[in-house]
Design a protein around this nucleic acid. Structure first.
Length: 343
DNA sequence: CGTTGTGTTGAG
DNA sequence: TCAACACAACGG
């Protein structure tokens, strides 16, 4: 079954909700631009100008230099895009650039190829086929959902990896990045629970992560890189009480950010190159009931119908190997709240 | 309680 | 369409 590059008009629902606004009275005098440190909370702070001792009413938040990015009272940044006279909120971010990038993604999704974006490098080259297809393969609601949850990069990476040899990935990619799988573990409830630790099966621990006898008590810090290039640092140590090897400090953050659940598979890899770089990845395990049905309803989009009704002459520009995506897609979606009201 | 993101406005 | 601003709703 093909599943890719679905025409947006058939797979997308629009954002609608009340609100309309406007009916303006008169305009207030524009406040003078101020460049002050952004901080504090809540609405208006009163600042005393040190020079002439004049009260500066209501400190203004410094605006962002990026399109679609608005300051938040707590110093963070919000991202938004307007569609059909309505604002679509894209989430809040600590990093201004990340917010800007989120806007870019949404702009590309909602407005297409020639959307004005913040970073010209974004999807500028034809090499970004993977991301283009990723955008095509998901509805606007899903993309927005990912942006708001900050899971876009991960989902894209997972998607790309699943596609593998697709598109124009050159061999240099795989050659230079060759790595070996050390071992995998199906995480247990306690691995993703409040214990904030991952038990490394002893056989694997002793084989791949030998703990220097001196460090046995304190443990050591180990860095792992994930599919997005993000580096995770975990404390690795041996617990005498349970006679087990564990990843402790840093692990809970990984669980949280990756939305790891019991039954998921965590993979540990190591670069075969001289750098010996360690990698960590995860995937949703296979055996699940029939989440597809749920998902299809959830987003109000009959994925299969949409796919099957697609004219057969429409070439799957995203390459094959996507049949499995449907399942993975379904699995991932089952954990989403979605923006149902917008559908 | 701090934060999110909606309501609303005026400008472009 | 867009950002600025205020603040109610939200979530821990």
């Amino acid at each position: 079954m093909v599943f890719s590059c679905i025409d947006e008009s058939s797979s997308t629902s629009e954002y609608f909700s009340p609100a309309t606004a406007t009916v303006t009275k008169f305009s207030a005098p524009p406040l003078p631009p101020l460049r002050l440190n952004r901080m504090g909370s809540g609405g208006s702070n009163v600042v005393l100008d040190s020079k002439n001792g004049v009260d500066i009413d209501s400190r203004k938040l410094s605006s962002s230099k990026y399109k679609g990015v608005v300051p938040q009272p707590n110093g963070r940044w919000g991202a938004q895009i307007y569609v059909k006279h309505q604002r679509v909120w894209l989430g809040t971010f600590s990093d201004e650039e990340e917010a800007a990038h989120s806007y870019d993604i949404a702009a590309r999704k909602f407005r297409g190829r020639d959307a004005v974006v913040n970073f010209k490098t974004f999807l500028a080259s034809e090499d970004d086929n993977g991301e283009l297809c990723f955008l095509e393969a998901h509805s606007k609601a899903e993309i927005v959902d990912m942006l708001r949850k900050h899971t876009y990069a991960d989902e894209l990476a997972q998607s790309n990896k699943r596609n593998g040899a697709n598109t124009n990935t050159t061999q240099s990619d795989t050659v230079s990045r060759t790595r070996e799988v050390l071992f995998e573990k199906v995480v247990t409830p306690s691995d993703v629970g409040k214990l904030n630790r991952l038990v490394i099966p002893k056989q694997h621990a002793e084989k791949h992560f030998p703990l220097p006898s001196l460090s046995v008590t304190k443990g050591v810090l180990i860095n792992f890189e994930d599919v997005t290039g993000k580096v995770w640092r975990f404390r690795y140590s041996y617990w005498n009480s349970s006679q087990s090897y564990v990843l402790t400090k840093g692990w809970s953050r990984f669980v949280k950010e990756k939305n790891l659940r019991a039954g998921d598979v965590v993979t540990f890899e190591r670069s075969t190159g001289s750098d010996r770089q360690l990698y960590i990845d995860w995937k949703r395990s296979g055996p699940s009931k029939n989440p597809v049905q749920v998902v299809v309803r959830l987003f109000g989009v009959d994925i299969f119908n949409v796919t099957s009704t697609k004219p057969s002459n429409v070439v799957d520009a995203c390459g094959g190997k996507r049949s499995r995506d449907v399942d993975m897609f379904a699995l991932r979606c089952s954990k989403k709240h979605a923006i149902i009201n917008a559908l």
